[in-house]
């Protein structure tokens, strides 16, 4: 069995609710969909237990009535897992991971600025990447935001 299948099986064994939520997209790529309530424990298991300790980026997506976040994490051997979680668009927050992964700070600020995500516990600091006088409530990466 391939390493990727092993990881998938191990995850399902530990978290039965992940059954049918994990895809092996291709060699060295896994995609995992997890509810926000269970995100922390799964994230902890993957980053500490399975050593997916290298944060590459966080992608934010506007998916109609919800915002989704993909945490791109990699192991040293080259296997990368994309951990996806979603929140309803109105007034739901995700927790920052910048305590454990300092590099997440800029990625999370980007989610706040461009998608209007709420990130709890993000340390104070200058915004990124929009200008300081950018109008409030305008989130360019939202699908209803038009450039013209």
């Amino acid at each position: 069995m391939s390493m990727e299948e092993n990881i998938k099986e191990g995850l399902v064994k530990n978290f039965s609710f992940l059954e049918n939520k994990i895809q092996v997209q291709r060699p060295r790529r896994l995609l995992l969909d997890v509810d926000l309530e269970r995100f922390e424990e799964v994230f902890e298991y993957l980053t500490k237990g399975l050593k997916f300790g290298h944060l590459i980026a966080i992608t934010g997506l506007d998916e109609q009535d919800k915002l989704s976040f993909i945490y791109h994490m990699a192991q040293d051997g080259g296997i990368m897992i994309n951990i996806k979680t979603s929140v309803p668009k109105d007034n739901f927050a995700i927790k920052t991971i910048s305590g454990r992964f300092p590099s997440a700070e800029v990625y999370e600020r980007e989610l706040v600025d461009l998608l209007g995500a709420k990130v709890e516990g993000l340390p104070e600091g200058s915004r990124y990447p929009l200008v300081d006088d950018w109008p409030k409530g305008q989130f360019p990466l939202r699908k209803d935001w038009k450039t013209k």
Binding site: V106, G125, Y128, P129, L130, T147
Partner: peptide, 18 residues
């Protein structure tokens, strides 16, 4: 040091969607 980035942000990701 506080680093402020984004002065070169050209909205490439949004532009790609269009």
């Amino acid at each position: 040091v506080d680093i402020r980035l984004g002065y070169n942000h050209r909205g490439v990701e949004k532009a790609c969607e269009e």
